[in-house]
Amino acid sequence: MADRRSSSTGTTAVIRVLSGLIVLGGYEFALFGAPVTPERIGASLGGAYLGAALPVMMWSLIVLMLGRRFGVEAKLISWGLGPALHTSLSSSRILMVRRIPVPVLRTRVAVQPAGTTKARLVALVLITLTVQGLTGWGLLFAPGPFGVAAGIVCLGTALVRLGGFRSIPSAAAGGRSVGSRNRGGDQGLQVLAALQRSVTEARRLIEDCSDPEWRDSAEGRKAELPVLLGEGRYREAVRVAESVAKAPGVSAVERAGAQQTLARALAYAMEATSAEPCDRERFLELCREMRDAPAQVTSGSDLRSLYYLVTGDAELAVDEARAAARVGSAPLRRSMAYCTLAVALMRAGRSEQAQKALRLARSQGPDNARIAFVAGVLSSVSAVVGD
């Protein structure tokens, strides 16, 4: 399993390198044989960008329009680049608008619960390659270096990425893709979507799940993790996060996400209960390990603020918590960031601002256990100050 993960990571790196070389090659070819002027450079850059973005966008649109006919569906739809500006979860998919509003539409594709066949996947990829190829060929006839760069990069990107096939989970040897993982993913999305409205409802979905194996699976434990945080069961969340991080078949991004949740749960546990031996050292070690975590894992997370709270720098904790709360992550995570901001403001001696942050925490998402805890702490501090 580890070898497969290493191979997948290596393949992704090769694809990125090849894509970069194609973009660079198309740009330089467009400038070849004529005077290099600012206008030609700008046109070539624009063409190279369009040629790289169009194949990705066309694959996403084809999946959205035709994917269900071929046994796949988009589980995550992302528009733009950079950190998330707004995130919306439904029972079937995640919608994300990113901070830099450039026209880039991307999807994360999954096989439908009923599964699919290799023949249907090949047909979908051939349709996509045909559309991408015709588009790239047409761009070659656009005037000037813009058309040359756009056409070359579009054709090259489509071939290197094989349309978009590499974003689909690999098919099983028998000709039918594995559907159980995606059924578990669907159940997990339903839990996460419900969690943004009600912690109690999300727990009920977990308890009422008709698949007895799902809850003990990696997918089930991943879905339960944020529910445990919402319920204030932080020590249990630590144990579940540990099991997810060690589960076979978990991707590098999923493992980083589990470690990030583990560190946050540990900080919340130290905040709400008596710290256990080595809690602080373990938390700091996890924070060091998360320094190079992918942005999609850390976006909107209050982990850096929690780090400064643990190390005793309230002002930096305020800055980091405020920055995390401004990111349009899912409502529960944003609510937790505002709770952390309230705690940081309280420790910085700004009680009125802390109360405002707590009100914002209540307005963002479900009435999770940490809101009640922070409210109690603020009331205690206000009573002491009043005395």
Rank of each mutant, 00 (worst) to 15 (best):
A194H: 10
S243F: 01
F29A: 15
S351H: 05
A241W: 02
V227W: 06
V63W: 00
R255Y: 06
R239W: 10
W79A: 01
Q260I: 08
R326T: 00
T200S: 14
V240P: 10
L61D: 02
Q259W: 11
A344P: 05
A337I: 04
A275C: 08
R215D: 09
S78L: 07
V377R: 12
Q196K: 07
I22P: 12
A43G: 15
L345N: 06
L76T: 14
G138F: 08
L155F: 11
A252Q: 13
G138D: 13
A158W: 09
K118E: 11
V327N: 02
H86S: 09
C339L: 00
M65R: 03
A142F: 15
R350Q: 09
S351V: 00
R362A: 08
A372P: 09
V310P: 01
A258V: 02
G328Q: 00
F141D: 13
L45I: 15
A158G: 15
E285L: 06
L345V: 01
S60G: 08
V385G: 04
P331G: 01
G136S: 12
L262V: 03
V14C: 01
L205G: 00
R120T: 04
I41R: 14
S78H: 01
T12N: 03
G184T: 02
W214R: 09
A149N: 14
R288L: 03
G185D: 10
W59I: 00
L89Q: 04
I62S: 05
A354H: 07
V343W: 00
G386I: 00
D186W: 03
D211K: 10
A342D: 01
L140A: 09
R197A: 13
A172M: 12
S88A: 11
S299N: 15
E224A: 10
S78D: 07
G386Q: 11
S363T: 05
M96S: 11
A52T: 06
V377G: 09
W214A: 09
Y308F: 14
G42N: 14
L66D: 06
I62R: 03
M336L: 09
A354M: 03
R333G: 03
A223P: 14
G175T: 04
A142Q: 15
W79N: 03
L225G: 11
C287A: 08
G349A: 00
R183T: 12
M57A: 11
S329T: 13
C287I: 12
A114E: 12
A245G: 13
V199F: 04
V131Q: 06
R93E: 10
V385Q: 10
A263I: 13
E254G: 15
W79R: 07
G80R: 04
C154N: 15
L266V: 08
C209T: 14
R98A: 09
V97F: 13
I127E: 02
R333T: 03
I168Q: 02
T107C: 12
A218I: 04
W79S: 06
V240S: 07
G80D: 07
R291W: 05
R69Y: 05
A252T: 15
D279A: 05
L341Q: 06
A354L: 07
R4K: 09
R264F: 06
G144H: 13
P145N: 07
M57R: 10
L303V: 12
V377M: 05
S301M: 01
L159D: 04
Y234E: 02
A269M: 05
V238T: 13
L286W: 03
G25Q: 04
K356R: 13
A247Q: 07
A369M: 04
